[in-house]
Design a protein around this nucleic acid. Structure first.
Length: 500
DNA sequence: ATAGGGTTAG
């Protein structure tokens, strides 16, 4: 017997481990053998061993889609994290669909820069974009950034590289053009589609109808609806909703009723948004009773009123009655199975502000946080405003410094306005600096508030430097007007001073 | 991969 060489050592170790292990159950081995036999005799059916050990890009994509559908920006972040995870896996590179899903999630949560970065990384990973990926790119350029030259460039690239633009690509382009008010140009794209034999659908026509409606051209919208029906393209519920909203805005409630009554004949089904738009129109026209009556009609049609519906009613109650009545409706909404959300609270708090019931705002704010409803930046702006009005500036600043506070430019403008009104010039300038440090871009209103305040306090030098600072962001005519007016009123733009 | 409804500062 050969002496154990060092190559045999591991085997010896293994044997020693086995001998020290508890004795194996013999019956277990028999059962195992039987199972193995059964498996080997089975018809060579399922070929799933082709499934890779680490998740396939398809699985990742499904997971990313699920995250993206959860709506908020956090979903887009989770999709992005998954994409990065995949890119770190050897041999399991994300495919075009994965990049597209992540980019689309970022696009729809208003993060065009991040979406572009994802599509860039797709290119640098050597993944060839397909029509879907290119369409997201078109969407980013056309819908988010309104950079139409770049959007057209993408379409040209598609044509040149054999990735044919389809109805989704063209509809996306049309949607972007319409949202920028370029309806004529959008109609040009529609013509182009027809020329190249790409059939438009409801997604193509609806944005154009929407653009017509928002610019008060309802007649054109109706004519386009007729055109699409005549060309064999079925309008969707969304298409009709666009029309319903426009008719409500001009008070043509009879026409809305007619549309609803004909809906079954015309093969479309009104949904919660149809009724919400109708109810909103009625509330804004002061017909709150009729609006409430529509809740019953919704329910009898199997439609459940949602937070938006509730908000429309709350706003209606505020306008036709008092914020206090709305507050009672809000508080009893849970009994009707209505889950109030942050916007509902914001609506009532805003109206309490209108009625100068600052303490009521603070109480309602306390109520909502107690109920576990997470305040958003709108809530905080309203609360900061109310605290300022109550003379609790320190509390407002305290809130601003707290961790879960999401300040926006509106919050800062609110604070600056209050500091300016109470003559706290140093603080005004301090807050302006703080918001810039936080990466929140001041608006023209911010600069107007600060410049007016500084000029009133005869601090012209700092006012001018503030105007120069505004030029780093953009040229704001209103800020320019403020500084010129301030200098004139302060006697600093007379002939003598200009010479000096 | 594309279209529609609700709320802020004075």
């Amino acid at each position: 017997m050969p002496s154990p060489s060092h190559r045999a050592l591991p085997r010896l170790l293994l044997l020693r481990c086995l001998s020290s292990a508890p004795r194996r159950d013999h019956r277990f081995l028999l059962r195992f053998a039987a199972l193995a036999k059964e498996l080997s005799e089975r018809p060579q059916a399922p070929p799933p061993p082709s499934r890779p050990r680490s998740p396939h890009p398809y699985d990742y994509n499904r997971l990313m889609t699920a995250h993206a559908e959860s709506g908020d920006g956090a979903g887009a972040d989770r999709a992005l994290n998954l994409l990065d995870e995949m890119r770190g896996l050897l041999g399991r590179r994300p495919d075009a669909a994965c990049f597209t899903t992540a980019a689309a999630a970022l696009f729809s949560s208003s993060r065009p820069g991040a979406a572009l970065a994802v599509l860039d990384s797709m290119a640098s990973d050597g993944v060839t974009p397909d029509a879907a990926a290119c369409t997201v790119l078109v969407g980013v350029y056309a819908c988010s950034l309104h950079q139409f030259a770049a959007a057209y460039e993408v379409v040209r690239w598609m044509v040149a590289n054999g990735v044919a633009p389809d109805v989704v690509t063209y509809s996306t382009l049309i949607s972007g053009l319409c949202s920028a008010g370029q309806v004529a140009e959008a109609l040009g794209v529609l013509d182009l589609m027809l020329e190249v034999g790409c059939h438009p659908n409801a997604y193509t026509y609806t944005p154009i109808m929407h653009a017509y409606c928002t610019s008060g051209r309802i007649h054109e919208a109706k004519r386009l609806l007729n055109t699409m029906v005549a060309s064999g393209c079925a309008p969707s519920t969304v298409t009709y909703n666009v029309l319903v909203e426009a008719l409500c805005k001009v008070g043509s409630f009879n026409e809305v009723e007619a549309l609803l009554e004909e809906s079954s004949k015309k093969e479309w089904t009104p949904d919660a948004i149809t009724y919400s738009s109708y109810m909103n129109g009625l509330c804004k026209a002061g017909r709150i009773d009729k609006s409430f009556a529509l809740v019953d009609r919704m329910l009898s049609n199997g439609l459940h009123p949602n937070e938006v519906t509730l908000n429309i009613l709350l706003d209606g109650v505020c306008r036709s009655s008092t914020a206090w009545t709305a507050k009672r409706l809000l508080e009893s909404s849970a009994e009707f199975g209505w889950d109030a959300n942050v916007v509902n609270y914001n609506t009532v708090m805003t109206r309490l502000c209108d009625e100068r019931k600052w303490l009521g705002v603070i109480k309602l704010f306390a109520d909502m946080t107690k109920k576990g409803i997470v305040p958003n930046s709108w809530t905080f702006s309203i609360v900061v405003h109310s605290l300022c009005k109550l003379g609790k500036l320190r509390k407002a600043l305290c809130l601003l410094g707290s961790e879960d506070f999401v300040a926006t430019v509106v919050t800062y403008n609110t604070l600056i306005r209050h500091l300016s009104n109470t003559g706290k010039v140093n603080e005004v300038f301090f807050v302006l600096h703080q918001m810039i440090e936080e990466g929140i871009a001041p608006t023209d209103m911010t600069y107007v508030l600060v410049i007016d305040c500084l000029c009133r306090e005869k601090n012209f030098l700092v006012a001018v430097s503030c105007f120069y600072r505004s030029l780093e962001d953009s040229f704001f005519p209103s800020a320019f007007l403020s500084i010129v007016r301030g200098l004139i009123v302060g006697g600093k733009l007379g002939k003598d001073t200009v010479k000096a």
